[in-house]
Design a binder for these strands. Structure first.
Lengths: 187, 187
DNA sequence: AAACCGAGTAGACGGTGTCTACGTCGCTGT
DNA sequence: ACAGCGACGTAGACACCGTCTACTCGGTTT
């Protein structure tokens, strides 16, 4: 157990998020979970979105770790691994992933969140650049190419999370679709 | 003004959605907007998600129209046009687009919604098949290819709506990224 | 005439985010 | 030693929200 009450609240919220999904992460439930009164969280966060932003920040931080660990000589291989890591993160933490991209729950302008978030994309963008330097799709604007591929991954995760597309998009089907996507971009 | 109270509620909700976004579309506000008491909507819908599902259904219907109108001899051209129409729809009706993919607001199992929704993807899938028949990426499973491209579009719309990726994804940048995506798949 | 039904109303209940006023500790400066 | 202060927590209120229930109509059917 951590002493810092701020941290305790974040951890209670994270546990609640993983256990019962985004809907359950309410200020009052977090407070109950942390063993404090319903108004206590507001002593440490300006409001719900501030607390949830802090939670989402840890999410982006974990995503960054997952996508940074990847060490391989070939830029192309690293880019491939990073793409897979992105989707694996979504599969492993669906509720967190949803929270991270719910702008009604999270304050996107919160500085720490914004920087952690953009750090991941920057890394991705760099990797795209490095891969281009090795002869992949030269001449295409690196940033646009990165955004395009990033969006493709994000869309796969989003549609899987949403459960749309009839019976087409079960987890393994999404994996297969990811294969098609990667082949399309990097094949 | 329509007589059917059910339709009136849907229209009030749609107006509210377009004017003030997803947050504002609450049962009580819809009722106020329609000039009835706060409990009246429940006479016509089993609950909030049922009403919102009806609204989302009209959204998918409009999306279907937008993507069906496209008439062109070349399958490849039609597929391209359909992709662009998808994003144009999202740009034109951001709040509706968000609602359509918010499974906490909408009952994805509602039959009418599910069928209207899958009809759009089916059409898309067919078009992918036709384009393949003309020599585009033969040998790739049509359904997976469709899902992959569909997700790429969906991701672009989602990221734009979300406003993430720092200053990278303004509206015109998304258009440019769409260009990269289309070139990647169909170039 | 009686029974019924679609449509609407008013009130209640439990839940929520946020605000405010009120307590407590423990530390620190004098 | 002690007054003060600031971090932390509490309790209650307020305005919303979705949903449920009991009640009221006007018209149609029988």
């Amino acid at each position: 157990m951590v002493a810092d009450p701020r941290q305790r609240l974040i951890e209670s919220a994270t546990a609640l998020l993983a256990d019962e999904g985004v809907e359950a992460v309410t200020l009052r439930r977090i407070a109950r979970e942390a063993g404090v009164s319903h108004g206590a969280p507001l002593r440490h966060f300006t409001g719900r979105s501030a607390l949830l932003s802090a939670v989402a920040t840890t999410g982006f931080a974990e995503l960054r770790e997952r996508t940074e660990v990847v060490a391989s000589a070939e830029p192309r291989e690293r880019l491939l691994a990073m793409c897979r890591a992105y989707l694996e993160f979504a599969f492993a933490n669906p509720a967190m992933f949803e929270l991270m991209f719910r702008r009604d729950l999270v304050d996107a302008d919160e500085p720490e969140l914004a920087s952690t978030n953009s750090a991941v994309f920057e890394r991705f963008s760099e990797l795209v650049g490095e891969t281009q330097a090795v002869g992949w799709r030269p001449g295409t604007d690196a940033r646009l190419l990165a955004a395009s591929l990033w969006a493709a991954l994000h869309g796969l995760a989003g549609l899987w999370l949403w459960g749309g597309l009839g019976d087409t998009l079960e987890t393994d089907q999404v994996d297969a679709a990811l294969g098609v996507t990667l082949e399309t971009y990097l094949g």
